[in-house]
Design a protein around this nucleic acid. Structure first.
Lengths: 341, 341
DNA sequence: TTGAAAGCGCTAACAG
DNA sequence: CTGTTAGCGCTTTCAA
């Protein structure tokens, strides 16, 4: 049998109520006793009984707040699926989740959302927001209130979040390089399309791609890095220009951005047969491109897990007082081809 | 608030004990009352409270028996990891697991193991065994006793197991074909190495590979299908012969078997540069081969999940009376290249 | 065949 | 500041 608070109480010569207070950091216990109890708990290697906690909480479930982009953004469908699955599993467990959808480009909205959750006495936050000062402050404030925050999908650096769950962007770039290396001939020329290099995240991917190509022996050369701002037109125009400058481009790495524009230009230039494409994620356009044989590979990083994990981690943190073991939880990289779909 | 057995009891005008008996299929309730309770439970849409169940069970946890190959078989390390993780999660939940390792080629051992679990009053079984008559009978017998069996990693067909969790072998063959198609030129010739075509499982993979190649436009031809029986020597000799017959082989699909033998022959024939290899799983030899650039791709099917899922499914079945939603749970296919490692 | 009641380990409200 | 106690929903004796 496992250790219970009762045993700790007996050993310490206090009541279970007191032990409960100490173990859950509630106020109103003389420091000396607190010490003593903590010591005993530690020495007995106490692990709280999940089921009992859950049951006791079932009347008034603990709230976990989720701040993320709205339903319209397709990528997040799978993330939401992961969250919902975790939430369903944890439902009988005294936790409930609440979503708040925000325009991720307007940080005020995120800040407002997280603030409201605190007012509602949320016990934990899943936060997907921009990496800027305003957001950083909002996180630090919340965490200082004793409410854990986990960033997911897109990280916020140098802040007090307890951990991050999402992609390893550098690695995805390296894998893209590895794939190009396998399908392109020696000395091939490639273009990279990204949204904008202003963001650290995008630069990581590009860096991974560059480093990857360098390590390999095929001397594949990056002749253009296009910033498409995820917009159709920008991408189209710039890619067309790239083709004009380098008629011998044989591969395109679509790190992020408008797949439609890319495919459009390729078709306009009748290059379907001669261009190999590697991209990321699996929006409908990508799926379509793969089906048609225009896209060779896509690299995904398990959006489902990006939703599922953080909630479980928060649960462990809140109920089991278990600190995350890592600061970065990178979701598994997956490579897909048409047969994988 | 959710429905509780108390509410059902009140509505039916009986005690909670009686409701409990009915809901858990225990004997000793008059059929008429049983009916009535079932009806009410259904109409109220009763869902048992996990936490309460777990807590009530915590004194005398329910046993789940696991029959699988011994620790020496490397592939199963990750499977065991998955089982252990699930077991840890479910530990506070009134379940405990017990392993029994058997030589999978000697069915008597498996049968004996499962029989013992039944004697020990196990409430569920995870079973990884050969697909033969003896095994089939043992499963059907157990299930008829009311104890659910889930086959994992390797299925047993036409039996009463509640579901199977493992690879989609056909799909992995198709993906191998897709990869070959991406890295080989038109009309390339390839060899396939498998253990033995006596087994349905191996034939599925081969069929997937063949079908995959046919669907694609590159006219890649399978010039040899080698049965290596997973033995170094057989593989070596037969592959050498294949090279003699077809000096222009450009690709090898190692469906299963001795990677060492394959690499050995390639090196002996100095074909490192000219042969592309796609294989399955990630034994140390494969990892080594990928690192050295001898193997281009390996296809894995999430062994971790093959352990994790079945246990969760059994738990849901036993505690929540939830039938698995599918008969086949195929674990995700993963494609790995050197940068993924 | 059924009911009553004592737990399972933890929390929270109230009393002291 | 600390102890007491009544639940949380389900299972499992023990009686009836």
């Amino acid at each position: 049998m496992n250790i219970t608070i009762r045993q700790i109480a007996d050993k310490a010569g206090v009541s279970r109520g007191t032990v409960d207070r100490v173990l859950n950091g509630r106020p109103g216990v003389k420091p000396a006793i607190r010490e003593r109890i903590l010591l005993i708990a530690n020495e007995l290697n106490y692990v709280p009984n999940v089921a009992a906690k859950a049951l006791a909480h079932s009347k008034k479930p603990v709230l976990i707040g989720i701040v993320m982009p709205p339903k319209e953004i397709g990528f997040f469908d799978d993330v939401r699926l992961g969250i919902n699955d975790a939430a369903a599993e944890l439902k009988g467990f005294g936790i409930r989740v609440e979503y708040r959808y925000v325009d991720i480009n307007r940080s005020e909205e995120s800040v407002e959302a997280i603030r409201m959750f605190i007012e509602e006495k949320a016990s934990g936050i899943m936060y997907c927001a921009m990496d800027d000062e305003e957001i950083r402050e909002s996180i630090d404030y919340v965490v200082e209130q004793g409410v854990p925050v986990i960033t997911f999908n897109s990280d916020v650096e140098n802040c007090k979040r307890i951990c991050f769950v999402g992609q390893d962007l550098y690695k995805s770039g390296r894998i893209a390089a590895g794939l190009m290396n396998l399908i392109l001939p020696m000395n091939a020329k490639v273009a990279v399309i990204t949204s904008t290099l202003k963001f650290h995240a995008q630069r990581s991917r590009l860096k991974g791609f560059k480093d990857g190509l360098e390590k390999l022996g095929k001397q594949i050369e990056i002749v253009e890095v296009i910033e498409g701002y995820e917009r159709f037109e920008d991408t189209q125009v710039k890619l067309q220009a790239a083709f004009a400058n380098h008629p011998d481009i044989q591969g395109i790495y679509m790190a992020t951005g408008s797949i439609e524009a890319c495919i459009d230009i390729i078709k306009k230039n009748s290059r379907e047969e001669r261009i190999r494409i590697v991209c990321n994620d699996l929006q409908p356009e990508v799926e379509e491109g793969i089906r048609q044989g225009l896209i060779d590979f896509t690299i995904m990083q398990n959006p489902y897990q990006q939703g599922y994990r953080p909630l479980r981690l928060l649960y462990d943190f809140i109920f089991m007082h278990k600190q995350p073991e890592q600061e970065y939880y990178f979701t598994e990289t997956q490579i897909s081809i048409s047969e994988s779909l």
